[in-house]
Design a protein around this nucleic acid. Structure first.
Length: 551
RNA sequence: GGCCCGGUGGUCAAGAGGCCUAAGACACCGCCCUUUCACGGCGGUAACACGAGUUCGAAUCUCGUCCGGGUCACCA
């Protein structure tokens, strides 16, 4: 055995397999030509983040449009930052948003697929096998520097304005010999395994980012850490090994990774792996005191996907909005295909924005209103009550006390309507929006429009309640309002009123407003005729009387 | 600070040297339609960061400046 082989045995004595073993174990995928294999590799350090959802969506739809595979892999190599229930929150979150998972973690504790395990903490032996091989080949070595030593070096570099990092002359253990290493290990000194980089700052590498285009950077020359002192790999190394063994074709990830690409490329090269295609997606930003910045888990409630559920945005609405950010041509497609599943959209990474989009609540609301307006009343009922059950129990009880009534309420201007209302963006708005349907929530405002006197309103209401007939259709209903116009000197036709505004006190429209105020306590509601039918004659008359008494 | 990436209306964006007097969407404003609200229709306000070059011609190519973002860990 030569020194490198001796060193490898010394450092990783328990590893008895070789890379070939794993190469054979995870053969090439049997997929049609052009199929893209993508993945999301979250670390369970918190809750599902908007950015993770966004990246997942991009990965998912890239796989879908190419008849490929989208899998999940848990990057739990940082045990210190791990959060309990983190895996579950992320996976279940993705599922709730309709991001289907072909392979990997398909629930908080279940994984599926032939390329596993899909959790890095269970792959230690695989990583170590490859590291051992690298050591034998003289491409990796142990480093015994302590955190303090490293810190000192960095400070020195900073004060001397030298590029920081473990490279060149600063790579203290780069040329460590077998016997030196053995002595240190015999002393019980902890160590990490570093790459013996053969790169140089002077050399440039270029790669074609599938989203950002051509990118040129200095080659990596840092002897970065492959294996931490606990034997677990760093992200960089795990990425190379896993995405090779799992045959990922497209690594689509947040663009904070761009600066690490030279490291990754070097790794793939020395390991003899084919470099995957990289695509770096820009972060979703937020305006903070006039400055654009990446949406932050800590500061921004909308960073956690949970926020949207709480607000009562449907999963579909959020996805739809994300799609408008992800693909500049999505909205055009949507206009041409208003009801088609977004999954049928021909997604193209090239159409992604290279700079980060500001999160736009207005746009989300608009997109969401359209989605909600396309739902049937029973879909709305289910979604709304599901939401209320979780986030507003009082409202849930009100809604479900008489489901039939609630469903009839929800179908106004909706089912069979040629022009459904675009009025609700999120369920948290619904309580106030529908308040006048429920006596416990009803809180009327009887303020009349300026051009109508209390006397006229009372006279109209008193006459109207005698002729109101629940069975009238919309035309008959309105004709009755019109029939009361002449005696009060209101124009029964809007056109007539507009032509001679001085001759009348107002129009039939104004009297309708009076009725609307009497029935709903507000001036802005859906079709009044339907509302009155849902409320029932008795309730309507009662409300009219109450109004007359309080005017 | 080094290294990357970016900069078209308030926001998202189209735009690949002449089709740009710069599209579309959201938001905002006005008008029309209308029993209210909405929907819909029509219209409006509003942008190529700045400066040099290259060119007959630049939002588009080059350079510089400025501004914004990302990254420089035994975190991902």
């Amino acid at each position: 055995m030569n020194d490198n082989e001796l060193l490898a045995e010394l450092l990783l004595p328990d590893i008895d397999k070789t890379p070939d073993y794993y190469e054979n174990m995870y053969p090439k995928r049997d997929l049609p030509e052009g199929a893209k294999v993508t993945r999301i590799a979250p670390s369970p350090t918190g809750y599902l983040h908007l950015g993770t959802l966004f990246t997942s969506l991009v990965n998912r739809i890239t796989a879908t449009t190419s008849s490929g595979i989208f899998f999940t892999r848990i990057e739990d190599t940082d045990k210190k930052r791990e959060v309990k229930g983190g895996i579950e929150d992320i996976i279940e979150g993705l599922k709730r948003f309709g991001i289907t998972i072909d392979e990997g973690f398909i629930s908080g504790d279940k994984q599926y697929g032939k390329y596993g395990p899909y959790q890095q903490s269970n792959r230690a032996e695989i990583y170590q096998t490859y590291v051992k091989d690298l050591i034998k080949r003289g491409l990796a070595y142990p480093c015994f520097c302590t955190a303090e030593e490293l810190d000192e070096v960095r400070k020195k570099q900073e004060s001397e304005k030298i590029r920081t990092g473990y490279h060149g002359e600063f790579a203290k253990h780069r040329n460590i010999t077998y016997s030196e290493a053995k002595a240190l290990i015999d002393e019980g000194k902890p160590f990490v395994i570093r790459l013996r980089s053969s790169g140089s700052e002077e050399n440039r590498i270029t790669f074609e980012d599938t989203i950002k285009g051509k990118i040129e950077m200095p080659e990596n020359d840092e002897d970065f850490v492959l294996l931490k002192s606990d034997g677990i790999p760093t992200y960089h190394f795990a990425h190379a090994i896993d995405d090779h063994l799992m045959h990922t074709t497209h690594v689509l990830r947040g663009d904070e990774w761009i600066s690490s690409v030279p490291k990754h490329i070097e790794l793939f090269k020395i390991l003899g792996f084919k470099v995957p295609k990289y695509g770096h997606v820009s972060p979703i930003m937020k305006l903070d005191n006039g400055a654009k910045r990446k949406i932050s888990k800590r500061k921004d409630p909308e960073a956690a996907v949970h926020f949207f559920a709480e607000q009562g945005y449907t999963a579909q609405s959020v996805i739809e909005y994300l799609m408008t950010i992800a693909a500049s041509d999505f909205e055009d497609w949507r206009r041409a295909n208003p009801t088609e599943d977004y999954k049928n959209f021909k997604f193209n990474l090239k159409k992604m924005s290279v700079s980060g989009a500001l999160f736009d609540e207005n746009k989300l609301n608009d997109v969401s209103k359209i989605k909600v307006s396309q739902m049937s009343s029973s879909e709305v009922f289910d979604s709304l009550t599901d939401w209320a059950k979780e986030f507003d129990n009082e409202f849930y009880n009100i809604l479900t006390e008489n489901s039939n009534f609630t469903k009839r309420m929800l179908s106004i201007d909706r089912d069979n309507s040629s022009k459904p209302r675009k009025d609700i963006a999120k369920w948290s708005e619904a309580k106030n929006y529908f308040a006048y349907f429920f006596s416990s929530l009803y809180c009327p405002d009887y303020t009349l429009p300026e051009n109508i006197s209390n006397e006229d309103a009372k006279a109209f209401l008193n006459n109207y309640k005698d002729i109101y007939d629940e069975s009238d259709d919309r035309q008959a209903w309105f004709d009755k309002i019109k029939s009361l116009c002449p005696s009060l000197n209101f124009a029964s036709e809007t056109k007539e009123y507009k032509a001679n505004p001085d001759m009348y006190k107002g129009s039939a429209g104004d009297l309708s407003t009076v009725l609307r105020i009497a029935i709903t306590g507000r001036r802005n509601t859906p079709d009044l005729c339907s509302i009155m039918q849902v409320l029932g004659k008795e309730e309507c008359i009662k409300r009219i009387n109450n109004t007359v008494n309080s005017l």
